[in-house]
Design a protein around this nucleic acid. Structure first.
Lengths: 250, 250
DNA sequence: CGCTTAGTTGAGTTCGTTCAACGACTGTGG
DNA sequence: CCACAGTCGTTGAACGAACTCAACTAAGCG
Protein backbone atom coordinates (compact mmCIF):
# COMPACT_ATOMS: atom_id res chain seq x y z
CA UNK A 1 0.00 0.00 0.00
CA UNK A 2 1.67 3.18 -1.18
CA UNK A 3 1.07 5.86 1.37
CA UNK A 4 1.97 8.80 -0.80
CA UNK A 5 2.36 9.46 -4.45
CA UNK A 6 4.38 12.54 -5.32
CA UNK A 7 2.68 14.17 -8.24
CA UNK A 8 5.07 14.99 -10.98
CA UNK A 9 2.53 17.13 -12.68
CA UNK A 10 3.25 20.82 -12.47
CA UNK A 11 1.90 22.17 -9.20
CA UNK A 12 -1.23 24.23 -9.24
CA UNK A 13 -0.20 27.89 -9.27
CA UNK A 14 -1.66 29.70 -6.26
CA UNK A 15 -2.98 32.42 -8.50
CA UNK A 16 -5.16 29.81 -10.12
CA UNK A 17 -5.98 28.00 -6.90
CA UNK A 18 -9.49 26.60 -7.27
CA UNK A 19 -10.21 27.45 -3.63
CA UNK A 20 -9.61 31.15 -4.11
CA UNK A 21 -12.70 31.45 -6.20
CA UNK A 22 -14.94 30.39 -3.35
CA UNK A 23 -16.84 33.12 -1.51
CA UNK A 24 -15.96 31.30 1.70
CA UNK A 25 -12.36 32.52 1.62
CA UNK A 26 -10.99 36.01 1.90
CA UNK A 27 -9.40 37.69 -1.10
CA UNK A 28 -5.64 37.80 -1.24
CA UNK A 29 -3.54 40.79 -2.24
CA UNK A 30 -1.16 40.32 -5.14
CA UNK A 31 1.97 40.40 -2.98
CA UNK A 32 0.49 37.87 -0.58
CA UNK A 33 -0.27 35.52 -3.42
CA UNK A 34 3.20 35.97 -4.78
CA UNK A 35 4.74 35.01 -1.47
CA UNK A 36 2.54 31.97 -1.02
CA UNK A 37 3.42 30.88 -4.52
CA UNK A 38 7.08 30.73 -3.50
CA UNK A 39 6.33 29.35 -0.05
CA UNK A 40 4.58 26.40 -1.65
CA UNK A 41 7.19 23.93 -2.75
CA UNK A 42 5.05 21.24 -4.27
CA UNK A 43 1.99 19.09 -4.25
CA UNK A 44 1.30 15.69 -2.81
CA UNK A 45 -1.40 13.18 -3.69
CA UNK A 46 -2.51 10.79 -0.98
CA UNK A 47 -4.62 7.68 -1.32
CA UNK A 48 -7.79 7.22 0.67
CA UNK A 49 -7.02 5.50 3.95
CA UNK A 50 -3.35 6.47 3.95
CA UNK A 51 -1.64 8.25 6.79
CA UNK A 52 -0.43 11.78 6.14
CA UNK A 53 1.27 12.47 9.45
CA UNK A 54 2.00 10.25 12.43
CA UNK A 55 1.94 11.17 16.09
CA UNK A 56 5.48 11.52 17.37
CA UNK A 57 7.02 12.21 13.97
CA UNK A 58 9.06 15.26 13.02
CA UNK A 59 7.96 16.58 9.69
CA UNK A 60 9.80 19.32 7.83
CA UNK A 61 6.58 20.24 6.07
CA UNK A 62 3.31 21.97 6.53
CA UNK A 63 0.36 21.17 4.33
CA UNK A 64 -2.81 22.77 3.15
CA UNK A 65 -5.55 20.52 1.89
CA UNK A 66 -6.33 21.31 -1.73
CA UNK A 67 -8.92 18.61 -2.35
CA UNK A 68 -10.40 15.72 -0.37
CA UNK A 69 -11.38 14.77 3.17
CA UNK A 70 -9.23 13.66 6.09
CA UNK A 71 -9.20 13.54 9.85
CA UNK A 72 -6.90 14.17 12.81
CA UNK A 73 -6.79 11.67 15.67
CA UNK A 74 -4.97 10.54 18.76
CA UNK A 75 -4.69 7.05 20.19
CA UNK A 76 -4.17 5.54 23.60
CA UNK A 77 -1.66 2.75 23.99
CA UNK A 78 -4.32 0.07 24.15
CA UNK A 79 -5.78 1.07 20.81
CA UNK A 80 -8.62 3.36 21.79
CA UNK A 81 -8.86 6.05 19.15
CA UNK A 82 -10.29 9.55 19.35
CA UNK A 83 -10.92 11.53 16.20
CA UNK A 84 -10.26 15.17 17.04
CA UNK A 85 -11.44 16.95 13.95
CA UNK A 86 -11.85 16.63 10.21
CA UNK A 87 -9.69 18.38 7.63
CA UNK A 88 -11.20 19.75 4.44
CA UNK A 89 -9.95 21.90 1.58
CA UNK A 90 -8.30 25.07 2.87
CA UNK A 91 -7.32 23.52 6.18
CA UNK A 92 -3.75 23.74 7.40
CA UNK A 93 -2.08 20.58 8.67
CA UNK A 94 1.01 20.34 10.82
CA UNK A 95 1.13 23.71 12.55
CA UNK A 96 1.30 21.98 15.91
CA UNK A 97 4.54 20.34 14.90
CA UNK A 98 6.04 23.81 14.66
CA UNK A 99 5.19 24.48 18.24
CA UNK A 100 6.03 21.18 19.83
CA UNK A 101 8.78 19.89 17.62
CA UNK A 102 6.96 16.66 17.05
CA UNK A 103 3.41 15.94 15.98
CA UNK A 104 1.00 15.29 18.81
CA UNK A 105 -1.61 13.68 16.64
CA UNK A 106 -1.91 11.71 13.42
CA UNK A 107 -3.71 12.65 10.22
CA UNK A 108 -5.32 10.19 7.84
CA UNK A 109 -6.97 10.56 4.45
CA UNK A 110 -10.66 9.76 4.30
CA UNK A 111 -10.81 10.16 0.54
CA UNK A 112 -8.01 10.72 -1.98
CA UNK A 113 -6.37 13.97 -0.95
CA UNK A 114 -4.23 16.55 -2.70
CA UNK A 115 -1.98 18.63 -0.49
CA UNK A 116 -0.02 21.81 -1.01
CA UNK A 117 3.40 21.37 0.57
CA UNK A 118 5.21 24.12 2.47
CA UNK A 119 8.67 24.16 4.05
CA UNK A 120 8.46 24.67 7.75
CA UNK A 121 11.81 26.45 7.92
CA UNK A 122 10.55 29.16 5.61
CA UNK A 123 7.83 29.97 8.09
CA UNK A 124 9.81 32.67 9.85
CA UNK A 125 10.19 34.66 6.67
CA UNK A 126 6.42 34.68 6.43
CA UNK A 127 6.26 36.29 9.84
CA UNK A 128 9.00 38.73 8.97
CA UNK A 129 7.69 39.85 5.62
CA UNK A 130 3.95 39.38 5.62
CA UNK A 131 2.24 40.48 8.78
CA UNK A 132 -1.17 39.90 7.26
CA UNK A 133 -0.37 36.26 6.55
CA UNK A 134 1.15 35.89 10.00
CA UNK A 135 -2.09 37.17 11.42
CA UNK A 136 -3.93 34.68 9.26
CA UNK A 137 -1.96 31.83 10.76
CA UNK A 138 -2.95 32.90 14.25
CA UNK A 139 -6.48 33.27 12.99
CA UNK A 140 -6.45 29.75 11.62
CA UNK A 141 -5.11 28.33 14.86
CA UNK A 142 -7.72 30.22 16.88
CA UNK A 143 -10.45 28.94 14.60
CA UNK A 144 -9.38 25.35 15.14
CA UNK A 145 -9.39 26.06 18.84
CA UNK A 146 -12.94 27.32 18.63
CA UNK A 147 -14.11 24.24 16.80
CA UNK A 148 -12.43 22.01 19.35
CA UNK A 149 -14.24 23.92 22.09
CA UNK A 150 -17.48 23.09 20.36
CA UNK A 151 -16.55 19.42 20.04
CA UNK A 152 -15.59 19.30 23.68
CA UNK A 153 -18.95 20.70 24.68
CA UNK A 154 -20.59 18.12 22.48
CA UNK A 155 -18.75 15.07 23.75
CA UNK A 156 -18.86 16.23 27.33
CA UNK A 157 -22.43 17.35 27.66
CA UNK A 158 -24.63 16.20 24.82
CA UNK A 159 -26.50 12.89 24.65
CA UNK A 160 -25.55 10.31 22.03
CA UNK A 161 -28.33 11.43 19.72
CA UNK A 162 -27.46 15.11 20.08
CA UNK A 163 -23.80 14.38 19.59
CA UNK A 164 -24.39 12.51 16.37
CA UNK A 165 -26.71 15.24 15.14
CA UNK A 166 -24.14 17.91 15.94
CA UNK A 167 -21.32 16.10 14.18
CA UNK A 168 -23.28 15.50 11.01
CA UNK A 169 -24.60 19.06 10.98
CA UNK A 170 -21.06 20.31 11.46
CA UNK A 171 -19.63 18.29 8.60
CA UNK A 172 -22.59 19.21 6.45
CA UNK A 173 -22.08 22.93 7.06
CA UNK A 174 -18.37 22.80 6.43
CA UNK A 175 -18.72 20.86 3.21
CA UNK A 176 -21.54 23.12 2.08
CA UNK A 177 -19.47 26.25 2.59
CA UNK A 178 -16.78 24.72 0.39
CA UNK A 179 -19.36 23.74 -2.22
CA UNK A 180 -18.21 20.15 -1.99
CA UNK A 181 -21.66 18.78 -2.70
CA UNK A 182 -23.06 18.56 -6.17
CA UNK A 183 -26.69 17.80 -5.73
CA UNK A 184 -26.17 15.11 -3.16
CA UNK A 185 -25.00 15.91 0.39
CA UNK A 186 -22.80 12.90 0.89
CA UNK A 187 -20.28 12.57 3.75
CA UNK A 188 -17.58 9.97 3.00
CA UNK A 189 -17.21 8.51 6.49
CA UNK A 190 -17.88 5.13 8.04
CA UNK A 191 -19.81 4.53 11.25
CA UNK A 192 -16.52 3.62 12.88
CA UNK A 193 -15.28 7.16 12.22
CA UNK A 194 -18.41 8.61 13.72
CA UNK A 195 -18.10 6.36 16.76
CA UNK A 196 -14.47 7.37 17.25
CA UNK A 197 -15.40 11.03 16.96
CA UNK A 198 -18.30 10.88 19.38
CA UNK A 199 -16.60 8.70 21.94
CA UNK A 200 -19.20 5.95 21.50
CA UNK A 201 -19.04 2.28 20.58
CA UNK A 202 -19.85 1.27 17.00
CA UNK A 203 -22.89 -0.67 18.09
CA UNK A 204 -24.43 2.23 19.89
CA UNK A 205 -23.44 4.61 17.13
CA UNK A 206 -25.26 2.40 14.68
CA UNK A 207 -28.41 2.43 16.77
CA UNK A 208 -28.17 6.19 17.21
CA UNK A 209 -27.77 6.77 13.49
CA UNK A 210 -30.79 4.58 12.86
CA UNK A 211 -32.81 6.91 15.03
CA UNK A 212 -31.69 9.90 13.02
CA UNK A 213 -32.49 8.03 9.82
CA UNK A 214 -35.95 7.08 11.08
CA UNK A 215 -36.66 10.76 11.65
CA UNK A 216 -35.70 11.40 8.07
CA UNK A 217 -32.67 13.54 8.87
CA UNK A 218 -30.10 11.29 7.21
CA UNK A 219 -29.79 8.18 5.09
CA UNK A 220 -26.92 5.72 5.27
CA UNK A 221 -25.75 4.59 1.87
CA UNK A 222 -22.71 3.29 0.06
CA UNK A 223 -20.33 3.57 3.00
CA UNK A 224 -21.26 7.07 3.88
CA UNK A 225 -23.98 9.38 5.05
CA UNK A 226 -26.47 11.38 3.04
CA UNK A 227 -27.55 14.42 4.96
CA UNK A 228 -31.19 15.05 4.17
CA UNK A 229 -31.91 17.81 6.65
CA UNK A 230 -28.87 19.65 8.01
CA UNK A 231 -31.09 22.26 9.59
CA UNK A 232 -32.97 19.67 11.63
CA UNK A 233 -29.73 18.07 12.78
CA UNK A 234 -28.37 21.40 14.02
CA UNK A 235 -31.68 22.10 15.72
CA UNK A 236 -31.72 18.75 17.48
CA UNK A 237 -28.25 19.43 18.85
CA UNK A 238 -29.13 22.99 19.86
CA UNK A 239 -26.20 24.06 17.75
CA UNK A 240 -25.94 27.60 16.45
CA UNK A 241 -23.79 26.70 13.48
CA UNK A 242 -20.31 27.76 12.51
CA UNK A 243 -21.40 31.32 11.88
CA UNK A 244 -18.37 32.16 9.85
CA UNK A 245 -17.73 35.09 7.62
CA UNK A 246 -14.91 34.94 5.17
CA UNK A 247 -11.89 33.09 6.38
CA UNK A 248 -8.23 33.14 5.40
CA UNK A 249 -6.08 30.25 4.30
CA UNK A 250 -2.54 29.81 3.12
CA UNK B 1 -21.15 41.54 44.05
CA UNK B 2 -18.54 43.63 42.29
CA UNK B 3 -17.30 41.71 39.31
CA UNK B 4 -14.19 43.73 38.70
CA UNK B 5 -12.10 46.14 40.66
CA UNK B 6 -9.83 48.34 38.59
CA UNK B 7 -6.58 48.61 40.43
CA UNK B 8 -5.47 52.15 40.74
CA UNK B 9 -2.06 51.06 41.82
CA UNK B 10 0.63 51.61 39.23
CA UNK B 11 0.64 48.68 36.85
CA UNK B 12 3.40 46.14 37.15
CA UNK B 13 6.09 47.10 34.63
CA UNK B 14 6.69 44.23 32.20
CA UNK B 15 10.40 44.47 32.82
CA UNK B 16 9.70 43.51 36.40
CA UNK B 17 7.02 40.98 35.57
CA UNK B 18 7.18 38.25 38.20
CA UNK B 19 6.48 35.64 35.55
CA UNK B 20 9.56 36.50 33.53
CA UNK B 21 11.78 35.14 36.21
CA UNK B 22 10.36 31.64 35.85
CA UNK B 23 12.40 29.10 33.91
CA UNK B 24 9.15 27.96 32.32
CA UNK B 25 8.99 31.00 30.04
CA UNK B 26 11.30 32.06 27.27
CA UNK B 27 13.51 35.11 27.67
CA UNK B 28 12.39 38.27 25.97
CA UNK B 29 14.63 40.63 24.03
CA UNK B 30 14.79 44.23 25.21
CA UNK B 31 12.81 45.58 22.25
CA UNK B 32 10.12 42.95 22.69
CA UNK B 33 9.74 43.89 26.34
CA UNK B 34 9.59 47.52 25.42
CA UNK B 35 6.78 46.91 22.98
CA UNK B 36 4.78 44.76 25.39
CA UNK B 37 5.20 47.45 28.01
CA UNK B 38 3.39 49.88 25.73
CA UNK B 39 0.93 47.30 24.48
CA UNK B 40 -0.19 46.69 28.05
CA UNK B 41 -2.61 49.40 29.00
CA UNK B 42 -3.42 48.44 32.55
CA UNK B 43 -4.19 45.88 35.14
CA UNK B 44 -7.41 44.40 36.39
CA UNK B 45 -8.18 42.62 39.64
CA UNK B 46 -11.01 40.11 39.62
CA UNK B 47 -12.73 38.48 42.58
CA UNK B 48 -12.96 34.73 42.90
CA UNK B 49 -16.13 33.50 41.26
CA UNK B 50 -16.57 36.53 39.05
CA UNK B 51 -16.97 36.37 35.32
CA UNK B 52 -14.17 37.83 33.21
CA UNK B 53 -15.67 37.37 29.78
CA UNK B 54 -19.11 36.24 28.65
CA UNK B 55 -20.01 34.15 25.64
CA UNK B 56 -21.46 36.37 22.95
CA UNK B 57 -19.85 39.57 24.21
CA UNK B 58 -17.59 41.86 22.22
CA UNK B 59 -14.62 42.88 24.27
CA UNK B 60 -12.12 45.49 23.15
CA UNK B 61 -9.48 43.86 25.29
CA UNK B 62 -7.19 40.93 25.49
CA UNK B 63 -5.86 39.72 28.80
CA UNK B 64 -2.95 37.81 30.14
CA UNK B 65 -3.30 36.21 33.53
CA UNK B 66 -0.74 37.61 35.92
CA UNK B 67 -1.83 35.77 39.06
CA UNK B 68 -4.61 33.38 39.98
CA UNK B 69 -6.68 30.55 38.55
CA UNK B 70 -9.64 30.63 36.18
CA UNK B 71 -11.48 28.52 33.64
CA UNK B 72 -13.07 28.77 30.20
CA UNK B 73 -16.46 27.19 29.60
CA UNK B 74 -19.43 26.92 27.29
CA UNK B 75 -23.04 26.26 28.16
CA UNK B 76 -26.02 24.72 26.43
CA UNK B 77 -29.34 26.51 26.62
CA UNK B 78 -30.72 24.16 29.24
CA UNK B 79 -27.87 24.88 31.63
CA UNK B 80 -25.50 22.02 30.95
CA UNK B 81 -21.98 23.37 31.34
CA UNK B 82 -18.72 22.15 29.87
CA UNK B 83 -15.45 23.48 31.19
CA UNK B 84 -13.05 23.62 28.26
CA UNK B 85 -9.77 24.44 29.93
CA UNK B 86 -8.22 26.23 32.85
CA UNK B 87 -6.30 29.50 32.67
CA UNK B 88 -3.22 30.09 34.77
CA UNK B 89 -0.55 32.77 34.95
CA UNK B 90 0.92 33.48 31.53
CA UNK B 91 -2.21 32.38 29.67
CA UNK B 92 -3.77 34.65 27.09
CA UNK B 93 -7.51 35.25 27.24
CA UNK B 94 -9.71 36.57 24.49
CA UNK B 95 -7.77 35.78 21.34
CA UNK B 96 -10.79 33.98 19.95
CA UNK B 97 -12.75 37.20 20.10
CA UNK B 98 -10.31 38.65 17.60
CA UNK B 99 -11.09 35.92 15.15
CA UNK B 100 -14.82 35.66 15.56
CA UNK B 101 -15.78 39.17 16.56
CA UNK B 102 -17.56 37.89 19.61
CA UNK B 103 -16.50 35.52 22.34
CA UNK B 104 -17.53 31.93 21.85
CA UNK B 105 -16.99 30.96 25.45
CA UNK B 106 -17.05 32.49 28.92
CA UNK B 107 -14.22 32.83 31.40
CA UNK B 108 -14.62 32.78 35.17
CA UNK B 109 -12.20 33.34 38.03
CA UNK B 110 -11.55 30.37 40.28
CA UNK B 111 -9.47 32.39 42.70
CA UNK B 112 -8.80 36.13 42.85
CA UNK B 113 -7.13 36.98 39.56
CA UNK B 114 -4.92 39.78 38.34
CA UNK B 115 -4.99 40.45 34.61
CA UNK B 116 -2.77 42.44 32.28
CA UNK B 117 -4.98 44.36 29.89
CA UNK B 118 -4.19 44.85 26.19
CA UNK B 119 -6.02 46.81 23.53
CA UNK B 120 -7.22 44.58 20.77
CA UNK B 121 -6.94 47.28 18.14
CA UNK B 122 -3.24 47.59 18.77
CA UNK B 123 -2.80 43.96 17.85
CA UNK B 124 -2.03 44.66 14.20
CA UNK B 125 0.94 46.82 15.08
CA UNK B 126 2.31 43.84 16.96
CA UNK B 127 2.13 41.80 13.78
CA UNK B 128 3.65 44.61 11.76
CA UNK B 129 6.53 45.45 14.02
CA UNK B 130 7.39 42.34 16.00
CA UNK B 131 7.42 39.17 13.96
CA UNK B 132 8.77 37.21 16.89
CA UNK B 133 5.82 38.18 19.07
CA UNK B 134 3.43 37.49 16.22
CA UNK B 135 4.93 34.03 15.99
CA UNK B 136 4.46 33.68 19.72
CA UNK B 137 0.76 34.40 19.40
CA UNK B 138 0.39 31.65 16.84
CA UNK B 139 2.46 29.44 19.10
CA UNK B 140 0.17 30.17 22.02
CA UNK B 141 -2.95 29.41 19.99
CA UNK B 142 -1.42 26.17 18.71
CA UNK B 143 -0.52 25.18 22.25
CA UNK B 144 -4.09 25.66 23.41
CA UNK B 145 -5.20 23.57 20.47
CA UNK B 146 -2.86 20.79 21.51
CA UNK B 147 -4.17 20.80 25.05
CA UNK B 148 -7.74 20.68 23.79
CA UNK B 149 -6.81 17.69 21.65
CA UNK B 150 -5.63 15.98 24.78
CA UNK B 151 -8.81 16.84 26.66
CA UNK B 152 -10.90 15.57 23.79
CA UNK B 153 -9.07 12.26 23.85
CA UNK B 154 -9.63 12.11 27.56
CA UNK B 155 -13.34 12.81 27.57
CA UNK B 156 -13.98 10.73 24.50
CA UNK B 157 -12.02 7.63 25.28
CA UNK B 158 -10.93 7.41 28.88
CA UNK B 159 -12.94 5.89 31.74
CA UNK B 160 -14.18 8.09 34.56
CA UNK B 161 -11.26 7.13 36.79
CA UNK B 162 -8.70 7.72 34.04
CA UNK B 163 -10.30 11.01 33.13
CA UNK B 164 -10.17 12.30 36.67
CA UNK B 165 -6.57 11.15 37.02
CA UNK B 166 -5.62 12.87 33.78
CA UNK B 167 -7.26 16.15 34.73
CA UNK B 168 -5.65 16.32 38.14
CA UNK B 169 -2.26 15.32 36.74
CA UNK B 170 -2.64 17.99 34.10
CA UNK B 171 -3.48 20.74 36.56
CA UNK B 172 -0.74 19.54 38.87
CA UNK B 173 1.86 19.71 36.11
CA UNK B 174 0.79 23.11 34.93
CA UNK B 175 0.78 24.61 38.40
CA UNK B 176 4.11 22.97 39.21
CA UNK B 177 5.76 24.45 36.12
CA UNK B 178 4.59 27.86 37.28
CA UNK B 179 5.83 27.21 40.81
CA UNK B 180 2.39 27.93 42.16
CA UNK B 181 2.74 25.46 44.99
CA UNK B 182 4.61 26.28 48.12
CA UNK B 183 5.03 23.04 49.91
CA UNK B 184 1.47 21.95 49.43
CA UNK B 185 0.11 20.91 46.00
CA UNK B 186 -3.33 22.38 46.35
CA UNK B 187 -5.75 22.82 43.44
CA UNK B 188 -8.47 25.41 44.18
CA UNK B 189 -11.38 23.69 42.43
CA UNK B 190 -14.65 22.19 43.58
CA UNK B 191 -15.94 18.77 42.62
CA UNK B 192 -18.54 20.53 40.51
CA UNK B 193 -15.77 22.02 38.39
CA UNK B 194 -14.19 18.63 37.95
CA UNK B 195 -17.53 17.10 37.01
CA UNK B 196 -18.15 19.83 34.44
CA UNK B 197 -14.70 19.34 32.99
CA UNK B 198 -14.92 15.57 32.73
CA UNK B 199 -18.47 15.45 31.45
CA UNK B 200 -19.63 13.48 34.49
CA UNK B 201 -22.30 14.02 37.14
CA UNK B 202 -21.23 15.37 40.52
CA UNK B 203 -22.27 12.20 42.27
CA UNK B 204 -20.17 9.97 40.12
CA UNK B 205 -17.31 12.44 40.20
CA UNK B 206 -17.39 12.30 43.96
CA UNK B 207 -17.27 8.51 43.98
CA UNK B 208 -14.46 8.53 41.43
CA UNK B 209 -12.41 11.00 43.45
CA UNK B 210 -12.91 8.83 46.51
CA UNK B 211 -11.29 5.98 44.62
CA UNK B 212 -8.30 8.13 43.78
CA UNK B 213 -8.11 9.22 47.39
CA UNK B 214 -8.30 5.64 48.67
CA UNK B 215 -5.31 4.82 46.50
CA UNK B 216 -3.45 7.66 48.14
CA UNK B 217 -3.10 9.75 45.00
CA UNK B 218 -5.07 12.74 46.25
CA UNK B 219 -6.77 14.14 49.32
CA UNK B 220 -9.84 16.34 49.32
CA UNK B 221 -9.61 19.19 51.77
CA UNK B 222 -10.89 22.68 52.37
CA UNK B 223 -12.80 22.98 49.10
CA UNK B 224 -10.02 21.81 46.92
CA UNK B 225 -7.72 18.97 46.03
CA UNK B 226 -4.31 18.12 47.41
CA UNK B 227 -2.32 16.19 44.86
CA UNK B 228 -0.22 13.65 46.71
CA UNK B 229 1.17 11.72 43.75
CA UNK B 230 1.03 13.50 40.41
CA UNK B 231 3.21 10.84 38.84
CA UNK B 232 0.79 8.08 39.77
CA UNK B 233 -2.15 10.06 38.41
CA UNK B 234 -0.44 10.55 35.06
CA UNK B 235 0.48 6.88 35.00
CA UNK B 236 -3.06 5.77 35.70
CA UNK B 237 -4.31 7.87 32.81
CA UNK B 238 -1.54 6.65 30.48
CA UNK B 239 -0.69 10.28 29.99
CA UNK B 240 2.74 11.32 28.78
CA UNK B 241 2.61 14.75 30.35
CA UNK B 242 2.78 18.19 28.83
CA UNK B 243 6.38 17.73 27.81
CA UNK B 244 6.96 21.41 27.31
CA UNK B 245 10.16 23.25 26.92
CA UNK B 246 10.22 26.96 27.41
CA UNK B 247 7.13 28.72 26.23
CA UNK B 248 6.39 32.29 25.21
CA UNK B 249 3.80 34.62 26.61
CA UNK B 250 2.82 38.21 26.05
C1' DC C 1 -14.94 -18.65 -4.36
C1' DG C 2 -13.41 -17.49 0.15
C1' DC C 3 -11.78 -13.45 2.71
C1' DT C 4 -12.30 -9.06 4.48
C1' DT C 5 -14.78 -4.83 5.72
C1' DA C 6 -19.04 -2.46 6.95
C1' DG C 7 -23.27 -2.50 8.81
C1' DT C 8 -27.22 -4.64 11.67
C1' DT C 9 -29.58 -6.66 15.51
C1' DG C 10 -30.55 -8.94 20.06
C1' DA C 11 -29.28 -10.14 24.88
C1' DG C 12 -27.03 -9.40 29.01
C1' DT C 13 -23.94 -6.51 31.68
C1' DT C 14 -21.60 -2.39 33.42
C1' DC C 15 -20.83 2.24 34.08
C1' DG C 16 -22.59 6.32 35.13
C1' DT C 17 -27.04 8.81 36.10
C1' DT C 18 -30.86 10.55 38.82
C1' DC C 19 -33.20 10.94 43.05
C1' DA C 20 -33.00 11.61 47.69
C1' DA C 21 -31.37 12.46 52.10
C1' DC C 22 -27.93 14.09 55.20
C1' DG C 23 -23.67 16.35 57.54
C1' DA C 24 -20.23 19.92 57.65
C1' DC C 25 -19.12 24.36 56.99
C1' DT C 26 -19.79 29.63 55.79
C1' DG C 27 -21.83 33.68 55.67
C1' DT C 28 -25.77 36.74 56.83
C1' DG C 29 -29.34 38.98 59.35
C1' DG C 30 -31.87 39.41 63.51
C1' DC D 1 -25.25 35.22 70.01
C1' DC D 2 -28.16 32.15 67.52
C1' DA D 3 -31.14 30.97 63.52
C1' DC D 4 -31.19 30.21 58.87
C1' DA D 5 -30.00 29.68 54.19
C1' DG D 6 -26.66 28.35 50.91
C1' DT D 7 -22.81 25.80 49.22
C1' DC D 8 -20.10 21.74 49.16
C1' DG D 9 -19.29 17.12 49.87
C1' DT D 10 -21.03 12.27 50.92
C1' DT D 11 -23.65 8.10 50.53
C1' DG D 12 -27.26 4.56 49.21
C1' DA D 13 -30.68 2.84 46.05
C1' DA D 14 -32.88 2.46 41.70
C1' DC D 15 -32.69 3.35 37.03
C1' DG D 16 -31.07 3.99 32.35
C1' DA D 17 -27.76 4.81 28.75
C1' DA D 18 -24.17 2.87 26.57
C1' DC D 19 -21.07 -1.16 26.45
C1' DT D 20 -19.61 -5.92 25.35
C1' DC D 21 -20.44 -10.18 23.27
C1' DA D 22 -22.12 -12.66 19.65
C1' DA D 23 -24.20 -13.90 15.54
C1' DC D 24 -25.52 -12.69 10.98
C1' DT D 25 -26.16 -10.07 6.29
C1' DA D 26 -24.41 -7.55 2.39
C1' DA D 27 -21.01 -5.81 -0.40
C1' DG D 28 -16.27 -5.57 -2.44
C1' DC D 29 -12.02 -7.76 -3.84
C1' DG D 30 -8.23 -10.95 -4.98
Amino acid sequence: MATTRATHEAKTPCKKCPLRGLPHFREFAADELEFVEVFKTGELAIDAGSTILVEGSHSAHLFTVLTGWGFRYKMLEDGRRQILNYVLPGDLIGLQGTVMGEMQHSVEALSPITLCVFERNKLMTLYNKHASLAFDLTWIAAREERILDEHLLSIGRRSALERAAYLLAYLYQRASALKLFNGRSFLPITQQHIADTLGLSIVHTNKTLKKLASRGFIRWQERGCDVLDGQALAGLAEWEGLGEGKRPFI
